[in-house]
């Protein structure tokens, strides 16, 4: 009985330590989430304005030809896949990996080859052996700015222009709220001019364009791509922290439950031990008394 008491005590101490860690991780994730959300908020005016101008330019300039708008029969597609670098964040990465796996299956069934650009370690590790990864950006999500988006875009765009592949997609977890992230896959290239319904409110104004509309659009498309990629990065980062926060919150309450049941077990065992000891003593005294 004594050994078991000790064993229960040891277990409950271990669980308590785990709880401390998960609680600390929860708090760290919460503060990181806050700063990630702030970053998203500050990015919004820029993104909205750029989208507006892109929409109104692309909408009115149907005849524009740009290498980035070139639609080709898709034979090879490339996917920028965004996951986190670290685990312990619930189903965050699994969801993305599943979405990308399905996407690859679908494309393969249509006879298209898929290659990946991996952002984040988890995604890379999961696809390293199965699929061709043309480039990877690992351990960069800790602190990043627009230059990471520029780097990714700078890598992805030239091969598209050189017709090494025909379509570029971006896959990331859309950040809806702390508890819910949804994997989305959007097409980046060829940049679609239709469906950009977010036309700027001033789109009715006749602008003077400098340089020409066409050149201006050619100038803005890369900016537009960077904005989409950057937004993906921001949402991934916020989603990762949100997801980890929730996962660690659950883990903490699980730990608390376990500690409670262990404490109960411990008390019960202790009680049993005391009872047994008492019985021994009582039995002993009675035997002595009988012997007299």
């Amino acid at each position: 009985m004594g050994a078991s008491l000790k064993e229960i005590k040891r277990q409950s101490v271990a669980v308590d330590k785990t709880r401390q860690i998960t609680r600390a991780m929860n708090m760290v994730a919460a503060s990181k989430l806050k700063s990630a959300q702030l970053k998203m908020e500050k990015f919004r005016p820029y993104a909205d304005k750029l989208m507006g101008v892109f929409g109104s330019l692309a909408g009115r300039a149907e005849s524009i030809t740009s290498p980035l708008l070139a639609v080709r029969e898709p034979r090879k597609v490339r996917v920028i896949m965004m996951t986190s670098d670290r685990g312990l964040c619930g189903g965050f990465n699994t969801n993305i990996i599943k979405a990308v796996t399905n996407f690859i299956k679908e494309k393969n069934a249509e006879g298209q080859e898929v290659s990946l650009i991996a952002v984040g370690k988890k995604g890379r590790d999961s696809f390293r052996k199965k699929e061709s990864i043309v480039s990877e950006h690992i351990e960069k999500l800790g602190s990043f700015d627009m230059s990471l988006a520029a780097e990714i875009a700078g890598e992805a765009v030239p091969p598209f222009v050189a017709e090494e592949y025909d379509e570029l997609y971006l896959c990331y977890n859309e950040f809806r709220n702390i508890a819910s992230q949804k994997p989305v896959i959007i097409r980046l290239l060829p940049a679609s001019t239709v469906g950009s319904e977010e036309a700027s409110p001033e789109s009715s104004i006749e602008y003077i364009y400098e340089p020409s509309e066409e050149q201006l659009l050619a100038h803005i498309i890369p900016m537009y791509l960077r904005v989409l990629i950057y937004r993906g990065l921001l949402e991934t980062s916020a989603g990762e922290h949100g997801s980890r926060m929730v996962a660690m919150d659950n883990a903490t309450s699980n730990c608390e439950e376990m500690i409670q049941s262990l404490t109960q077990q411990f008390n019960r065992a202790r009680q049993a031990a005391i009872t047994a000891e008492l019985m021994d003593i009582v039995g002993g005294t009675e035997a002595l008394a009988a012997g007299k």
């Binding site: 003077i208 400098e210 201006l216």
Partner: peptide, 8 residues
């Protein structure tokens, strides 16, 4: 009072 203008 500049005319509406869009430039890179």
């Amino acid at each position: 009072g500049h005319a509406p203008f869009l430039s890179s």
